[in-house]
Design a protein around this nucleic acid. Structure first.
Lengths: 203, 203
DNA sequence: GGGTCCACATGACATTTGTCATCCCTCATT
DNA sequence: AATGAGGGATGACAAATGTCATGTGGACCC
């Protein structure tokens, strides 16, 4: 009885290559390939998949939300996150969303099939380097609004732009940005954005 | 006689998957896999490769510089760029560096082996969508220094930081940033950075 | 030789940020 | 009932940023 696998990754080339690579394994069968997160839960149910391999960064529904959707729709299906960026915050959030494993795309290819087997058996698979970072990095120090405002600031708009898009007064926006800068340790707004992004506190 | 292929991509998972996928083809033989751009030219020479598949974004030597190095070291070896981000500026720069083909990771996997064969035959392979964008987008309007300063600004430092790292006076830095903002159409420094990055004018 | 473009610089100026104190309101905890 | 945290706001002030005029000097082209 082979492991029924669903793969979701927005880069078609990567998705296809992963499917081809894993399809070679005797005990793994790729039953669906998706380009975004919206249809993942439905595909898992339809094909009664055993494992879902999800990218974190995807258009539409992001991988972490998709993982939660899969867990709700098919509790018996395990989720393995595969991501480009090893952001400590991503790992924690993915685990909270019900993922069983978390590997970065920078790990050797041979370990991938093994990771799929492990999560299928109910084991947890976590990149050890990332796990350590995740412990030291800790949770996001930002409040919900601070995070929202910082995210709104991440594409380079002015305070006035952010205030309009967040329906806040300009003074309030500046206060939140100031707080975010203090908490992240950034000396400018842009630096705070970078730090928060690197830690996976935005999304 | 099979096509001898060198693959360079910083994400081990992707690199391995691509190698596995292309290794399945009868007429393609993967002779080397690299994780960065520094050793590509040497590997091409050592294995007398016919085609080099390079990622644009890599640590150490970036893909475009690596392409130029390959062309210098082994003029008979064709270069096929494979990138995550379809930045118009990347395409133009890659072609000027001597690449024969340029595909984004978002294209169907089946076309990849075909692209390798085409460049090996001396044909050019270019994503049509990207080619069109590249024509409308045009070259970078930034001068060399403006680009350098904007790149230095991209990690969120203050004017004083940039001035120190670029060995310029603060006033000059402000002038360059002002010019860069005018040319990109950005209303703030951060917006200018985003626009320039999206067009592939930095790096 | 004159024109143009770029690198680099200075000084002045208006605007935008970032900081801080201080206020109100709500909700949860003690 | 009191305390504290978070969301939201105002006003004032210092520092940083963005704009502009203007200058020098080198390179390149006609």
């Amino acid at each position: 009885m082979s492991i029924r696998l669903v793969i979701a990754d927005d880069q078609a080339l990567v998705r296809g290559a992963l499917a081809a690579l894993l399809g070679l394994e005797q005990d793994i069968e790729v039953v669906a390939e998706l380009g975004d997160g919206t249809g993942v839960a439905a595909a898992v149910v339809e094909h009664s998949a055993d494992v879902a391999m999800l990218d974190v960064e995807m258009p539409g529904l992001d991988g972490i939300s998709a993982a939660a959707a899969v867990r709700r729709a098919a509790p018996s299906c395990r989720v393995l996150m595969v991501t480009t960026f090893g952001r400590p915050g991503y790992l924690k959030r993915a685990m909270q969303a019900g993922a069983s494993g978390f590997v970065v795309k920078d790990t050797p290819a041979r370990q991938l099939a093994e990771a799929v087997r492990r999560v299928h058996q109910g084991l947890r698979v976590v990149d050890p380097v990332l796990a350590a970072e995740s412990l030291t990095a800790g949770d996001s120090p930002l409040t919900e609004r601070e995070g929202e405002v910082l995210k709104a600031a991440s594409d380079g708009g002015t305070v006035a732009d952010i205030a309009k898009s967040a329906m806040l007064s300009e003074g309030t926006v500046r206060n939140y940005l100031s707080a975010a800068m203090a908490k992240t340790g950034g000396r400018t707004r842009a630096e705070a954005v970078r730090i928060a992004e690197d830690n996976g506190w935005l999304l």
